[in-house]
Design a protein around this nucleic acid. Sequence first.
DNA 1: TATTGTTATACTCTATAACTATA
DNA 2: TATAGTTATAGAGTATAACAATA
Lengths: 145, 145
Amino acid sequence: MATTRTDPLTLEVVDLIGTVVARYYEEYDRAAAAHSLTGAQARVLGLLSLEPTPMRKIAQKLKCEPSNVTGIVDRLETRGLVERRPDPADRRVKLAAATEKGARTALQLRESLGFAREPLAELSHAERAVLRDLLRRMLGVDAES
Amino acid sequence: MATTRTDPLTLEVVDLIGTVVARYYEEYDRAAAAHSLTGAQARVLGLLSLEPTPMRKIAQKLKCEPSNVTGIVDRLETRGLVERRPDPADRRVKLAAATEKGARTALQLRESLGFAREPLAELSHAERAVLRDLLRRMLGVDAES
DNA sequence: TATTGTTATACTCTATAACTATA
DNA sequence: TATAGTTATAGAGTATAACAATA
């Protein structure tokens, strides 16, 4: 295993990954903006479309302070995309949940994210499998399938 | 070429790329914060450590409005990491350039970004070459080497 | 006492529009 | 007149600290 700090091949792969990251964010923000959402709002809406979530847990998933989530959910709530519900089990907790309208928006958002899907169309099934295995090993993910 | 919208393999690869992107940003922000820099400041400092750049061109590379660059460079300049120089060829233009201190910081920043480098160490040289070729094709990049 | 969510505050990033100094 | 950079303004995301309600 050669040094991965200086060899040209590794540097090129790092650079390519940087390009993937940049393109991913561009497309994400563009898709969100198409629904007049910021990136953070789109991310929270996506989370809540999966399941109602306590404010505190949203902050953990976003890796930010809980106080920030208040404002983001406020703005989504103002637009009727999200609502706050009491948690029957703990009256301190508020569950943020996507409304029907919010769930529809989240679905459209997900479907408009062609990135990483369209570029993958350039690869054959076998090549995608190779890419999957390499990414898994890079990330230290256990194979599941 | 099967549909890349629904088949499980493609969905998993998309998910893995999402994880790569998230980890990339986490590490970038963490490295920047270690030098008390925001992500945007670290990005601009990295650019300027390569070559002095007109304010307008910085905005183009960051894909933001030129007015934003003024503040970012202001903050870097206050900390002695960057300086503004006149452009001899056009007196309207200001060239932002990394100071010696700024160049040192940029170098440390670059070296502390182990991500995409450390994970790659898990792969053999041949595997990294395969990954490079697949990423190139995904991104529609012409092979150069 | 500890925890949940919120408020208050301050800073950074962002876009828009108006301004200045050059070209 | 067109362009480069700045300023002014407003909205959004962020962290910190202090607070009310509940556990």
